[in-house]
Amino acid sequence: MTAYDAHDEPAAEHGMTRRQLMRHAGWFGGAVVLTVAGGEVISQIAGARGSTAAAATGSAGTAGTAARTAAADSGTLRFVQVSDSHIGFQGPANTDVAGSFTEAVNQVNSLGFRPDFVMHSGDLTHLSTAGQFDQVKQMMAKLRTDRVFTVPGEHDSIGDAGRAYRRTFGTGTLGDGWYSFDTHGVHFVALVNTLSLEKLGHLGNDQIDFVRKDLAGLSSDTPVVVFSHIPLFAMYPKWGWSTDDALKVIALLRRFSSVTCLNGHVHQLFSKTEGNITFHSATTTAYPLPKPGRAPAPTPQVVPARQLKAALGIRSVGYHRGDRELAVKDQRLA
């Protein structure tokens, strides 16, 4: 698996060309904290302090009580998702992406608990240079957590099929950087769907075979969490916000009672439930993208400074052993 402290190595070699990247220059993502308590999924945007936007089951008050109970219970798994930091981006949509990512790191460190791990769900860098990878790795080293995991975005594989990314973050991974791990009774799968793509995300047969073998020995009541950069559902295929062969993986996940898929790439919050599978797209720490269909293309949006911070954020996720689902809490940087 690809948790890292400071040392990483290379892996396989195919992916997207610079020309392909230019076709998708508007693809980006955000930060998320998920928590599961009492079987409830709690989704909160913390622009207004302490206000609960929605709870999947029960009242907002019950959900808040459950979250506090989970936080007090040392048996609860708590992790953080951050996404689409785009270190190296230069443009009016955010003139200081390193500064906003630093704010996200500080916010993670101020959550009031130490996350079991932090996952960055892709587009760590904007142009996949060695300097940008080194910068984002040093910034994430300041996170107060024992483990940091990553998956690559398409901006992390410009011109070199992801080799520079894997040299920095690929230790212990398979193929183009996929892997799995277990903790607190939850099985995690980290996928790479940003290589070999023309428009939509793509997993490929080797990776799908990995998922098939990886899940084969698990009981159907094991909670499963899947990370990817591009959504595994058809959020907006016209803009490439989907994965062309994701249904083959979704079919393998159908037998599990609780599956949560977390992605970045789209730079905005979006949730969708299909049977036993819930999909959560994360916001970004860099800059917003338009809502699907509300612009000719998914290009960085220039907004007033105060609105920019409100569009950026992190996500925390929690799970208490024995519960069925994960609780997701989204927080703005503002």
Rank of each mutant, 00 (worst) to 15 (best):
G15N: 13
T17F: 02
R18K: 14
L34P: 03
G38Q: 10
V41A: 13
I45S: 14
A46C: 08
A48Y: 13
A48Q: 14
T57S: 09
A63H: 04
S74D: 08
S74H: 03
D84G: 15
I87H: 00
G99A: 04
F113C: 11
D134L: 12
D134S: 13
M139N: 11
L143E: 09
R144D: 14
V148I: 15
P152W: 01
R163A: 10
Y165D: 09
W178E: 04
T183F: 01
H184G: 03
H187F: 04
F210V: 01
D221L: 00
P223T: 01
V224K: 04
F227T: 00
P231S: 00
A234L: 01
K238C: 08
G240N: 08
A246S: 15
L247K: 15
V249E: 10
R254Q: 14
N263F: 06
H265L: 04
T278Q: 09
H280N: 03
A282F: 00
A282K: 00
P288E: 09
P288C: 08
P292N: 02
A295K: 06
P296K: 05
P296N: 04
P298G: 05
P300S: 05
Q301M: 07
R306I: 10
Q307G: 03
L308G: 14
L312S: 09
G318L: 00
K329A: 14
R332E: 13
L333F: 11
